[in-house]
Design a binder for these strands. Sequence first.
RNA 1: GCGUUUGUAGCUCAACCGGAUAGAGCACCGGCCUUCUAAGCCGGGGGUUGCAGGUUCGAUUCCUGCCAAGCGCACCA
Length: 586
Amino acid sequence: MKRKLEALIDQAVKTLQSEAVLDASLAPKIHIERTRESSHGDFASNIAMMLAKAANTNPRALAEKIVAALPVDRSLIKTEIAGPGFINFFIDPNAQFQIIQEIHEDRELFGQSKIGAGKKVQVEFVSANPTGPLHVGHGRGAAYGSAIADLLSAVGFNVEREYYVNDAGRQMDILATSVWLRYLESCGELIPFPANAYRGEYVREIAATLHTDQGDQYRKTTQQVFSDIPPDEPQGGDKDLHIDALIERAKLLLGASAYQAVFQAGLVAILSDIKQDLSEFGVDFQQWFSERQLMNDGSIQEALNRLDAAGYLYVQDGATWFASSRLGDEKDRVVVRENGQTTYFASDIAYHMHKLDRGFDQIINIWGADHHGYIARVKAAVQALGGDVAKLNILLVQFAVLYRGEERVQMSTRSGEFVTLRQLRDEVGKDAARFFYVMRRSEQHMDFDLKLATSKTNENPVYYVQYAYARICSVFRQLDEKGWSWNIQQGMDNLALLTESHEMSLLTTLSRYPETIERAALQYEPHQLIQYLRELANEFHAYYNAHQFLIEIPDIRNARLNLIYAIRQVLANGLNLLNINTPESM
RNA sequence: GCGUUUGUAGCUCAACCGGAUAGAGCACCGGCCUUCUAAGCCGGGGGUUGCAGGUUCGAUUCCUGCCAAGCGCACCA
């Protein structure tokens, strides 16, 4: 309908242009929107106000000319000029009824579209370091990213979901060393556990399993491990020097292959935990892309070679720099350190080279807001590699600030003090957690009150939507119990009997579903879908309280059942899209 | 200090990317269960959209400045 009206106005404008009322060079962007109030009709356009100045006339006069030039259309019963120059459109109610027929035919496909035209889109999200379990801070990115991926796929994009695994680098060495030290404790050694090591309970569990599986074969004495190691922070030393020395000592004492074995034990345990966690959260990835692979297969060197060939690398103070400031970054960045090791950013450059080479039409990175400083340098890298920056879309998700009641909860993977995503799911359930995470705009700094989320679960709006779905299911169960019939055809023939105001507004809301999906997908705003579902549920609950569906008169009964069936279908489509369950009774 | 995101009802947030009288939930007050699930519905109070300018027919939305909060500003990842 929206599209149709746009086409009509477009024709009217062209007609006026041919009559020289409007300048032929004008190419106005025609914008149709839903009205907020029913007295303003169903749709409105501001076209006259946009063009009035160029046409050297006042908006209302121009609006009249546009209306006069409007081609005839059966479903359009009235136009009105209102306010400063809005053109309001009134749609024939009979045309509105078609939406019910449409939903009954399309079922679970209703709302999907092909505007993505099968274009390849990669969505990379979560990508948390595999140094510990996911905590509630990661949950938002997970829920948001998967919602965007699912929305894009619903509107016809060919979507690939990817998790970038930072399985290389110092953090992983710290983890491996932490596991080993806990392992030594399992063997019976008395270890002064470093301040900067991973202190979480999960490290102990991994170490215990390692001990059970491998026995004492990686055991060294505390004396061997700690002799001549610089003091830790609590002893007045530097915690970074301390842990780095321990990492070197571990590699030395264990030898390369045994160190690898310990390293792998930690990585594999944590990564498989993350995979399972996400899967249970309704988030699945097609690709788990390994940073170590980039280092081992020469990709980093290749990326650096390409930058060098393009003239973007130089050496200074013994390090190799990428001249990102020439491409919009605030300063140049080191890619190879003085000690010969490549930086994390170098891996990132290689990773994005890979993404570009894989031929996606669009690349979406979903990052936590703490990474916003990386946008400029990554875009610079993409440009320097000869890629199209316009294809790279970096979306930031603001952090959820955690509270327990009034008190702010600090989280740190290192210290082991955090609330895991799994704990949250156990307490509130997957549905409530997903709903809550996606409910708000991603740029909005979100306050997440754990006390509220875990204690007053009945207040979570997800139940409101699910309840509407369950109520409709219940109506159809009652129908069977009463032994009454539901004749769909008879209902379709009598849709005109749906004349109540609740019914009219439900028809409009139902017809808004496809455009809601489309907008939510293209603007990367899944909260719009949530907003919509709450509205649809609200209108249904109001309708439910105001009118009876299971009534004696078959014509009306069947028409109403057709309507609520359509409502249930749309609720289900929306909830399924968000990976939220549709319980048939609550 | 620089960059970036945010600032809307007592609290948590919307507002179809510049539209008409800024809307929901929670909380508060008052109603509705011998009829399809009261996890619901109906009604009420509550606002200088952080502040000050600017752009135009029209600004919560765009621009500038200021104020406040979050997050960044490594040869760490």
